Simulated scan of single mutants.
Amino acid sequence: MTTEAKSPVRWGILSTANIATKVARAIHFAENADLVAVASRTEERAATWAQEHNIPTAYGTYDALLADESLDAIYIPLPPSLHAEWTIKAAEHGKHVLCEKPLAANTDEAIAMADACRQNGVQLMDGVMWVHHERTTAMKKKLGDGTLGRLRRVTAAFTFNWDTIPVGNIRAMKEFAGGSLGDLGYYCVRAILWAFEELPTQVFATARYKVGVDFNLAGILWFSDERIATLDCGFDTGLRKWFEVAGTRASIVCDDFTVPTSEDTARFWVHGPDGNEQNTVDGGIQEVKMIETFSQIVQSGNLETQWSEVAVDTMRVCDALLESDRRKEIVKL
């Protein structure tokens, strides 16, 4: 008895933004995906980028890419302010959507995106890569097998430093829904939700603004069962990309959770009363795993709504944190 091999998922990339280079490489590496088309705002830019990244078809408009009936899935690395418009259009064309994070400019847009994908029978996932790494699976096992005891606290940080704010960078542009929380803190919020597996009951945040966007932000999140989490993110502190999940017996520390230092291995530590144990996980490139996971869902025909649900929940928390800073008070969810 033989099993018929499923055809690779045919991908298109909608925009030639910088992060698209990383994802294009991942699609090429993925065993169940083919990168067949890219679109930019001009035919010249699209053709040049397609040649540089070994892509056979280039389109000079985003609409032309979506009209390509041969494509199964679209990766959208546009600025956050454009995510809702083009995700909804892609869904209406029957395309599965991998959308760069943050999922949207706000929660209302995120919900509209999830609704559109559900109504059109297509998968929606945000581009948070670290959750797909084998290390994340190994850490999650420690959270659930009693190693840490009862979970009490999560602490997460993601920062880097700009000595001079770069002109034209969408991270620092209000009109594109820029800001440190959406760009960096989104990862921290996801780590907290990943560990505690539910929304917080209330949050508090304080932020400092420059050029119209939150340049740094620190937040506190309260959860049921007397659990608490804290996060900080910003464009004004040296590179930090770590989290700690602490329980009544021990804690897990990961010092490079957003992007492992090496593509060959990844590490984390368990800190307990008997000392520190380093754990090393062999394993693959996380963005390739993301593409393969997404493509497997498309091939199976069985949509996995948990991916859009956690992305929308991440937006809910981010919006609550920003609202708390504006109101200078605790916000309940």
Rank of each mutant, 00 (worst) to 15 (best):
T164K: 00
R152I: 13
E175P: 04
K101H: 10
P166C: 01
Y187V: 11
G121M: 08
T137S: 15
I111R: 15
V189I: 07
G121R: 13
A157S: 15
K142F: 10
N169P: 03
P102S: 06
V189Y: 01
A157M: 10
L103A: 07
T136R: 06
A172Y: 00
Q119V: 03
Q119T: 04
M173W: 03
P102K: 02
T164Q: 05
V131H: 02
K140L: 09
N161R: 05
F158L: 10
H132V: 15
D145N: 10
E134G: 11
L148M: 06
L148Y: 01
W130F: 08
N161Q: 03
E175R: 06
Q119L: 11
L143G: 15
M173T: 00
A156S: 12
T147D: 15
G127F: 10
V167P: 12
G178M: 06
A172W: 03
V189L: 06
N106V: 14
D108W: 11
V122E: 05
I111C: 07
G146D: 00
Q119S: 09
G179M: 04
A116T: 02
F158T: 11
L148F: 05
P166N: 04
C188H: 03
H133S: 13
V167H: 14
G149F: 00
S180N: 06
M129S: 09
V122R: 09
A116S: 01
R190S: 05
A114Y: 11
N120M: 12
K141I: 00
V189R: 06
N120K: 11
P102I: 05
A157T: 12
K101P: 09
P166S: 00
E109T: 04
L181S: 00
A138N: 07
Y186S: 15
A157I: 12
R150A: 14
Y187R: 08
D183M: 11
M139D: 01
G149R: 02
L124K: 12
K101A: 10
D115V: 09
E134V: 06
C188F: 01
L103H: 02
H132Q: 14
A172Q: 05
M125Q: 11
D126G: 06
A112V: 12
R118L: 12
T136A: 11
D126C: 08
G149L: 00
S180M: 04
N120G: 03
A138L: 09
E109F: 07
P102H: 01
A156W: 02
G182L: 06
L124N: 04
F158R: 10
R135I: 07
I111S: 06
R190W: 04
D183A: 08
L143M: 15
M113C: 01
I165W: 10
T164S: 05
N161G: 00
M173G: 05
T147Q: 10
